[in-house]
Amino acid sequence: MYDFTYAKPASLAAATAALATEDAKAMAGGMTLIPVLKQRLNKPSVVVDLSGLGLTGITVTGDSVTIGAMTTHAAVAASAEVKRAIPALAALAGIIGDKEVRHRGTIGGSLANNDPAADYPAAALALGATITTSKRAIHADDYFQGMFTTALEADEIITSVSFPVPAKAAYEKFKNPASRYAMVGVFVAKGPAGTRVAITGAGQGGVFRHAGFEAALAANWSAAALTGVPTSDADLNSDIHASAEYRAHLCNVVARRAVAAAG
């Protein structure tokens, strides 16, 4: 780690002001940020700890689940209300990383980071979530802009994420054998936002919607409907664990399993 100053503001305004400093960096659970700092891959001037802003908590109304940005994966996984309203979301949170990571890592941190193999981006995009920030509300369709890239401005803080409650949804994750991040993770949803399929881990540009799968499922919500629906491997990742071709194949297998699980 390089030296930096540490700030723990008590209000959103103070946090925004602190983040206006050049090379300032927000910190939520630190599960991604701290390893990056330890490897000296980032040299922030000030680390702005968001844990004093009161951004935790889960609110469930009839048609939406709203989760404070600083809510941990473990809290979402354990929430009886989330399990009732969007069981797929609770289940997704419960298979992120390991226990230690789930007790520190947050939904805001995950969405702000937008790792191309992270799980939450798939849920946000498939469910048509709204990401509320210190400045505005951003629809998921506008939020994800490529790997590790989002619509957030440098001093913009995610405060909460709101998910419309779907009629049916499920998330299936084919884990990278080494990192256990998603090698191909597919979130399928049928609900107010329509029939949507979001895939994480596979695409070079991070999470993406699969038009072919969506069309097939809109016509016929069943695993069988996806049989033979192709995924182009042109924009998929290729690495030592999975070629683009294998990932394209897995997209179909994993999507079918997700639909079967969604019922």
Partner: peptide, 19 residues
């Protein structure tokens, strides 16, 4: 698998890639 590319760069240089 300790994976190297043809030039000798270690591709599985962390637990993110070495299973």
């Amino acid at each position: 698998n300790a994976a190297y590319d043809a030039s000798g760069q270690l591709l599985s240089g962390s637990f993110m890639d070495y299973t």
